[in-house]
Amino acid sequence: MTLPSWLEKVPSTFGTKGHGKLKADHWRTVSTVNLVITLVRWWGTVNATPEELEALKNYIHLVVPADFASRRSMSYARAAAYDFHMEQYLLGLIRIYNHTLVPNHHLSLHLRRLLDAFGPVHGWWMFPFERYNGLLQPEMSTTFMCYFYIGTASHWLISTLQWPATKEYNDMLWSFENGMHSVTPFGAPHAGQISEIFYHLQTEQGHTIIEPFLVVDAYLPLNPSDASQDPYRKFPELDMRLYYDRFEERQHVIRANDIVTHFAAFKYEPDGIQGMCIVARNLDRMTTKVSIPI
């Protein structure tokens, strides 16, 4: 499996006694990337038993809200989708496993109100406080005051200073001011691989503008017949799909801001499709479109 360098990778000893205690990011990767790719590949095909397919659907109902709730942006539609899938997951726990719900399950159904009211959880969850706990242990007073003042001073500077009226500063201020608001989603990105980066120089109204461009090899989409055998398309909320493990003949030249996100990739030969394919797991944490099944 190929993962971008910024994604917290699961230890190679995962599943054994020697892997130790996993961090929250490790669990996030293994739950929303590794296991999703593997379980859909095993239990999402026509060869899966009804019990396996039911267990997979219930697991997907957990993955989707965990993914949606931890995005860097929030909208009312995404909060509603979180609530729908979380409720379906809990109902599945009772129906399939006769599981007794615990207080955390109950609390998870109240999170939608907080997502609607406060936006992305990164602005109000407890991980920063946990990080401060680690900082406080070696040098309690000085370390705490140092990091506290750094954070508050940065917030004050961004919100009060008169920043230059340039695109770079405007983009920074927009991100600061709009992080708690929804973004306009667009269609599903197409998986590809950057083969070359070059700079284009032009002059506009006496100003020299240097802009980077990227040459991208796009993976070849499945034909309609093979697409019907793609197990990942049964779960559109995951924003995953198979491509042939080869590139389109024509390369694409795009601007840097046309790059949406990285993706996790895994190559295998699916049942019912001749030849190797690559599954692309979209790792976009901002703009993926959401829908709620009726």
Rank of each mutant, 00 (worst) to 15 (best):
E130Q: 09
I158C: 13
L157Y: 10
H155R: 13
M145T: 07
M145E: 06
L135I: 15
E130N: 04
M140S: 09
S141C: 04
F148G: 00
G151R: 07
Q137A: 10
T143G: 06
G134Q: 05
A153C: 09
T143E: 04
G134A: 07
S141R: 01
L136V: 11
Y132V: 02
L135V: 05
Q137P: 01
S159G: 09
T143A: 06
S141N: 08
N133R: 15
A153R: 03
H155A: 05
L157C: 11
I150N: 15
L136K: 13
W156G: 03
T143F: 00
E130F: 07
A153D: 14
M140R: 01
S154I: 15
S141D: 07
Y132N: 00
M140P: 03
E139P: 00
W156Y: 13
Y132G: 00
E139T: 06
E130C: 03
S154Q: 13
L135P: 01
L135R: 03
A153V: 15
S154M: 15
T152S: 08
R131W: 00
S154F: 08
A153S: 13
T152I: 14
L157G: 08
E139I: 06
P138H: 01
T142F: 09
T142G: 11
G134T: 07
L136N: 15
E139R: 02
L157V: 08
Y132C: 00
L136Y: 04
G134V: 05
W156Q: 09
S159A: 10
T143M: 05
R131L: 10
R131G: 01
M145S: 11
C146K: 13
Q137C: 02
N133G: 08
E130L: 09
G134M: 11
M145D: 12
N133Q: 09
L136F: 12
F148C: 12
R131D: 03
L136G: 09
N133I: 11
S154D: 08
S154N: 14
T142K: 06
H155L: 08
R131A: 02
I158W: 03
G151C: 11
M140D: 03
S141L: 08
S141H: 04
T152V: 13
L135Y: 06
L157F: 15
N133H: 08
P138R: 04
T143D: 05
T142H: 10
A153P: 10
M145Q: 13
S141T: 14
P138E: 05
Q137H: 09
L135A: 02
Y149G: 10
Y147F: 12
T143C: 13
L135D: 01
Y149C: 01
N133P: 00
G134K: 05
F148N: 12
G151Q: 12
G151F: 12
S141W: 04
L136D: 04
Q137S: 07
R131C: 00
E130M: 09
G134R: 05
W156K: 09
W156P: 05
H155Q: 07
F144G: 03
T152N: 04
Y147R: 11
E139V: 10
M140W: 06
L157I: 15
M140L: 14
M140N: 11
I150T: 15
C146T: 05
I158D: 03
F148Y: 13
G134L: 01
Y132R: 02
C146S: 07
H155I: 00
F144W: 06
H155E: 13
P138A: 08
I158Y: 05
A153Y: 13
I158K: 01
W156H: 12
F144T: 10
T142A: 08
L135W: 01
Q137W: 02
